[in-house]
Design a binder for these strands. Structure first.
Length: 441
RNA sequence: GUGGGCGUGGCCUAGCGGUUAAGGCGCCAGGUUGUGGCCCUGGAGAUCGAGGGUUCAAAUCCCUCCGUCCACCCCA
């Protein structure tokens, strides 16, 4: 459809919708978002991770040169654009490369290592949307940069494990694998390709593509006709160098000691080229696509790729939308938005004036107030107050204005009293104090 | 990027070739003069996703596009 010109616009205005694969987060959704955010922040604080936020767009090279030539993300999913100054920019398609860029830019290598940070923000990928997959999604991610010991792997994985548990989710699993490093993985990939090359004609189309682009994924094919090839394929664990083997063994020992119930999945592979050694993924046991709630891995070559000194790193990303899908599915109790303390119904223009004064005074002491709509009947305003679950309604009509008072109605027990307009804030505070005392007792 | 299902007022749904597209929720207004949650009455609100075609006649059939959902792919 064509952009409406000024003439046609008056005839037939264009109807707009949120772009494909994006969503509005409405007031009723916010309790879930705040809940996930709060748990993430709380858990990160307990693990000593500080918040970092980077721009949602970067010089395109930050992502294009790091994720890997043949990856889907680089080949077809990045939102690329040129700004008015002719800079090539990319909306961030993942959350790690940009943090590493910041690590280098701000000289964090000279701080005590590792640097422990987390972020919460939007990620953009031009992909075909479906349930649990969006073109803009929100990711909570964690990065520990500057220490390559398996102890840090264990820490990051334990953080993810703790996070998911504290969200109140159950029936999920943590899969773990190692994919070797720059030394041993290329040797394995060579062996894998040598084994697969003669078998290619008998394999599915996807596998023939994987052979070129992402050979590790050959081992994860579900096609019936590819299974025999998988069964006879060389195994990565037979190719691991001693360093990788030992790293993985120590990680498992740490995780076991921390009672993280991982399971090893030799077919677990990541979509970005920069991952080394440890990779992991957390997803619910319930069947279904797009189920991964959080996943990550070690990226010991990434800092160097972005121009820094050789520096190890590890992190994960977890998708808010998918977590919330599971929170809703499992009916995890999430605190609703707090209702307003007071609703002010006002019946005359003079009453409206007094309503505004009372509202300001009550808000000043920290209570929530909704002021009713001008010209609405008292009945309509009280109906609204009830719908909003306000604890009190203040009624202001001609009588109240004349005496500078307010009729304060308790909407829970229906009691009503007339008090001076100036006393409304104190009355509300007193009532919420008695309420919390009752709860304590 | 591939294959398939679906698309009716803000939301959920009925209607599946033929007079003014029906119902529920929600919204608005009333049920006597300033009082909520239940109930009752009334009202507003839909060019039946968009465009094209078939037909005397289309929300109902066909095509294209868009959106959405499911599987694959990929991933958070």
């Amino acid at each position: 459809m064509r952009e409406p010109t000024i003439e046609t616009e008056t005839v037939k205005p264009q109807k707009y919708a949120a772009p494909r694969g994006t969503a509005d987060i409405l007031p009723e959704d916010w309790p879930y978002w705040l809940y996930v955010r709060d748990v993430a922040e709380r858990v990160c604080a307990r693990f000593g991770y500080g918040r970092i936020e980077t721009p949602i767009f970067e010089q395109a090279g930050v992502f294009l040169r790091t994720a890997g030539e043949g990856t889907d993300i680089v080949e077809k999913e990045v939102y690329l654009f040129e700004d008015r100054g002719r800079d090539r920019l990319a909306l961030r398609p993942e959350g790690t490369a940009n943090v590493v860029r910041a690590y280098i830019e701000h000289g964090m290598a000279s701080l005590p290592q590792p640097i422990r940070v987390f972020y919460i923000g939007p990620i953009f990928r031009y992909d075909r949307p479906q349930a649990g997959r969006y073109r803009q999604h929100t990711q909570f991610g964690v990065e520990a940069i500057g220490d390559g010991d398996a102890l840090v792997d264990a820490e990051v994985i334990e953080l993810l494990w703790t996070f998911v548990r504290e969200l109140g989710l159950r029936d999920y699993t943590l899969k773990l694998n190692t994919i070797g490093d720059q030394v041993c993985r290329p040797q394995f990939v060579d062996a894998l390709r040598a084994y697969y090359r003669p078998l290619l004609p008998g394999l599915c189309e996807d596998c023939r593509a994987r052979f070129e682009k992402n050979p590790l994924r050959l081992l994860d094919c579900k096609e019936e006709r590819c299974q025999s090839a998988i069964a006879g394929a060389p195994r990565l664990r037979d190719y691991l160098c001693d360093a990788c083997r030992e790293h993985f063994a120590r990680l498992q020992a740490y995780l076991t000691a921390q009672a993280v119930a991982y399971e090893i999945d030799e077919r677990l592979v990541r979509g970005l080229d920069y991952y080394t050694r440890t990779v992991f993924e957390c997803h619910p046991l319930q069947e279904g696509a797009q189920s991964s709630m959080g996943s990550g891995g070690r990226y010991d070559g990434l800092v160097e790729l972005l121009g820094g000194a050789p520096t190890p790193g590890i992190g994960f990303g977890a998708g808010f939308e998918r977590l919330i899908i599971n929170i809703k599915r499992q009916e995890v109790a999430v605190a609703p938005a707090p209702p307003p303390e007071l609703y002010i119904a006002h019946l005359t223009p003079e009453a409206s004036m007094l309503a505004l004064e009372v509202a300001a005074a009550v808000r000043a002491v920290g209570c929530g107030v909704i002021v009713g709509g001008a010209g609405r009947s008292l009945k309509a305003q009280l109906r609204h107050a009830n719908a909003k679950q306000a604890r009190y309604a203040a009624i202001i009509g001609a009588e109240e204005v004349a005496s500078q008072t307010v009729t304060l109605r308790n909407l829970v027990d229906h009691s009503e009293l007339r008090i001076a307009a100036d006393d409304v804030p104190d009355a509300l505070l007193a009532s919420s104090a008695t309420k919390s005392e009752r709860i304590d007792a």
